[in-house]
Design a protein around this nucleic acid. Structure first.
Lengths: 128, 128
DNA sequence: TAAGTGTACCATGCACCATAGTACACTGTC
DNA sequence: GACAGTGTACTATGGTGCATGGTACACTTA
């Protein structure tokens, strides 16, 4: 389904969250589609069920999936997802931080801008 | 000198590191200029000396400052700083992650691109 | 000599993460 | 009704990294 990086600074449950979010938002997991159960996914990616559950809980809180008790977890209608102000500010700050990282590595402004452009361009096709 | 955000997910020593790096790379702290001593800065920003030292050690490792034992810590010649491949990859990944955050918040590709453009534009003047 | 500097430790408390294990309520199927 | 599978909620444990407090030492400058 996806790959984990145990050496990453990101915690495992965050990686699971982000990976699933990507699969959902790019349409690889369609709206209404059933996600693997907590126990099943935990076996697949060799992680504790609690860790998977934490990721699912977070995704539900953010509106990407929904749960029917006793039945399973399903992909929500992501066309309804709208950016709340707080998350938007966080994302903006993260992008500013990343761009600063590029600049402060010694690259010129134009070089950094060029690299950023390439990276963003690669995200053009895999989107809505 | 700068402000800390205790509610941030970033650790304090990382915030100190990043803030100083920004002051250095934007020229607010000139090459050769003396930085506040570990103990002095720790008092100024109300943080443990060990935490400041950790930030200084990191900045020295990355080449932004240098130390003369018994004398003090000084801003290095940052025009010599060059991006190593590994740091560059990390920065690229961070930028990709941040841009994904924007996209997956429900923004259209063009909207995300527009916002990213504005953020990067604000970094144009404060650079070399 | 004295003060200020970087530097290196150690110990402690805290928060977060990941794991292991148990338990319960719900749903669908046989 | 019984059972399997589902989400969910706990508790407990160990590990890691962070921040703090404290001590100590070598160095340089006045």
């Amino acid at each position: 389904m996806f790959q984990l990086d145990l050496k990453s600074r990101k915690s495992i449950y965050e990686q699971v969250t982000d990976n699933l979010k990507e699969l959902i938002m790019t349409g690889t997991l369609a709206s209404g589609e059933k996600l693997p159960s907590v126990r099943e996914l935990s076996k697949t990616i060799t992680v504790n069920p609690n860790t998977v559950q934490k990721a699912y809980r977070e995704l539900e809180r953010q509106g990407y999936i929904y749960t029917t008790s006793g039945v399973g977890t399903f992909v929500a209608d992501v066309s309804q997802i709208t950016a709340d102000a707080h998350s938007l500010e966080l994302a903006k700050a993260a992008l500013d931080d990343a761009f600063k990282q590029l600049l402060f590595l010694g690259l010129s402004y134009d070089e950094a801008r060029e690299i950023a452009g390439e990276i963003m361009e690669q995200r053009r096709l895999s989107d809505d």
